[in-house]
Write a protein that binds this DNA or RNA. Structure first.
Lengths: 71, 71
DNA sequence: TTTCAACACAACAAATCCGTTGTGTGTTTT
DNA sequence: AAAACACACAACGGATTTGTTGTGTTGAAA
């Protein structure tokens, strides 16, 4: 329960940042050597990503990882 | 390479916070339903922990997860 | 010295991650 | 309408995580 909420919120936050930058899931994915489906699952809160995974996503979005957690 | 550094830094940071609170690996582990060995691997940078795992550790240390990333 | 606490390291197995492939739906463009 | 784009969902499989058990080292306390 709590885990689902955490992952959902994280996914929403990442989507929010991505859309704010005006890039697609595919663009983000390819910029960090991943697939569109991986980003989809991340944003949907379907996976419990590792810290390095998030680190890569943060790089792809050009933000600091902290951005994923405050607010 | 880069991954190793990230995980090492994270582990060091967690250890720093834990020691600052004056608790042992075992106490931290048990407070969140884990084993001493799990915390040891985390602090040693030997694993690439999931975000939920870190969330639990943050709870056990009574800090916000952001603390793991700034400085 | 013996005992105990704290930490480190390794191996095993079940669970999970995540890259990949394939497909579907809705919207926009030509 | 046809084509292209953005996103969603599911299944497969190799890799990784992580709980568990067992063991070793070091230092402090008894």
């Amino acid at each position: 329960m709590e885990k689902e909420v955490l992952l959902k919120n994280l996914g929403d936050r990442i989507r929010e940042i991505r859309e704010g930058k005006g890039i697609t899931q595919k663009q983000l994915a390819h910029s960090i050597g991943k697939d569109q489906q991986s980003i989809q699952r991340l944003e949907a809160g379907k996976i419990n990503p590792s810290i390095f995974y998030l680190h890569e996503v943060a790089k792809g979005l050009d933000v600091n990882m902290e951005f994923f957690f405050n607010q």
